[in-house]
Amino acid sequence: MRNRGWRGEPPSDDDEARERIIAAAMRCIDRHGAAKTGLADVAAELGVTRQTVYRLFPSAEDLFQAMAVSAADTFIDRMAARVSGFTEPAEMLVECLAFTLERLHQERHLSALFVREQAHITRQFTSATPSELTRTLMARLPVDWHALGIDRRRQDQIVEIYLRTLQSFVIDPGPPRSPDELRAFLRLWLAPAIRVPGPDRLGGEAGDPGDASSGPHERRASGRPGQ
């Protein structure tokens, strides 16, 4: 690690340098907003050259992804705590998605990955970083997915439909909805896609999709008779 710059206090190694660059990016966003923050601003905040930042983060998107991952860790813990009293996995994910939609634009460091460049928003939502963050969320929820018959392939499908729903709301929020109305909408259209399937659905066998949420297996797994 070079000793030049860093306002006279150079980091001890690249890991510390990355942490300080991410922290500087967060401060810049707090002052200027995500849309007006670039690598040059971060470099100036640290008292280093742009080349120093480029060496560790080859592009602004690399830096913003790293910052989003750092900010997401705490946010995921907050969501997991919020649904700790829920019993049905589908209801947990509905609440997590609704909470994310309500909070995303207030979480400046987390939302920067998605709102900084609208032209790239589709690619960003389908990139590895949002998918890994959603898998982390699922792992921290009080759910034993495998015990419910939800294998890794099925979990990946849940991650995809969750992110595609989030993407559609961020791009076009649609008509105004109260918190209760938003949850009711997600419960009606998203929850059936992520509820615990019947045994015949796990193998991908043909059948009437409308029966998947009404069989005895589903009623036992969800703990909500009559659903």
Results as ranks from 00 to 15, higher is better:
Ile21Trp: 00
Gly203Arg: 13
Asp156Ser: 13
Val159Gly: 02
Gly174Cys: 10
Pro199Thr: 09
Val115Ser: 03
Ala17Thr: 05
Asp208Ala: 11
Val115Thr: 09
Pro89Thr: 09
Val159Trp: 01
Glu117Ala: 12
Asp151Glu: 12
Gly174Lys: 10
Phe86Pro: 02
Glu160Asp: 14
Thr74Tyr: 09
Thr74Phe: 09
Ala90Ser: 15
Phe57Glu: 00
Val115Phe: 06
Arg177Leu: 14
Glu61Trp: 11
Asp77Gly: 15
Leu182Ser: 02
Ile21Leu: 06
Ala184Val: 05
Leu163Ile: 09
His146Asp: 14
Glu205Thr: 12
Ala98Thr: 06
Pro199Arg: 11
Ala193Pro: 00
Glu107Thr: 06
Phe125Cys: 07
Asp41Thr: 07
Asp200Val: 10
Leu141Lys: 05
Arg187Met: 13
Thr126Pro: 01
Leu148Pro: 04
Tyr162Val: 04
Ser127Cys: 08
Arg20Cys: 07
Gln157Glu: 15
Ser84Pro: 02
Leu166Tyr: 06
Arg220Trp: 13
Leu137Pro: 00
Thr134Gly: 02
Ala23Asp: 11
Arg78Lys: 12
His105Pro: 05
Asp73Leu: 10
Asp30Gly: 08
Gly149Tyr: 07
Lys36Thr: 07
Val159Cys: 06
Trp145Ser: 05
Ala81Leu: 12
Gly204Met: 08
Ile22Phe: 01
Gln65Ile: 12
Leu133Cys: 12
Gln118Ala: 15
Ala90Leu: 06
Ala112Arg: 01
Asn3Trp: 11
Tyr162Glu: 00
Arg27Asp: 11
Ser168Glu: 14
Ala128His: 11
Leu166Gly: 02
Ala24Ser: 08
Ile161Trp: 09
Thr136Asp: 13
Cys28Lys: 00
Met92Glu: 02
Arg116Pro: 00
Thr100Val: 07
Arg140Ser: 04
Phe75Asn: 02
Ile121Asn: 03
Asp144Lys: 08
Ser111Pro: 02
Arg20His: 06
Pro209His: 06
Ser12Arg: 15
Thr134Tyr: 00
Gly8Ile: 08
Gly204Asp: 07
Phe86His: 14
Pro130Arg: 00
Glu19Asn: 09
His120Gln: 15
Ala24Gly: 04
Arg201His: 08
Ala34Asn: 03
Gln157Cys: 10
Ala193Trp: 08
Pro58Glu: 05
Met1Arg: 10
Met67Gly: 00
Ile121Tyr: 00
Gln106Asp: 15
Lys36His: 13
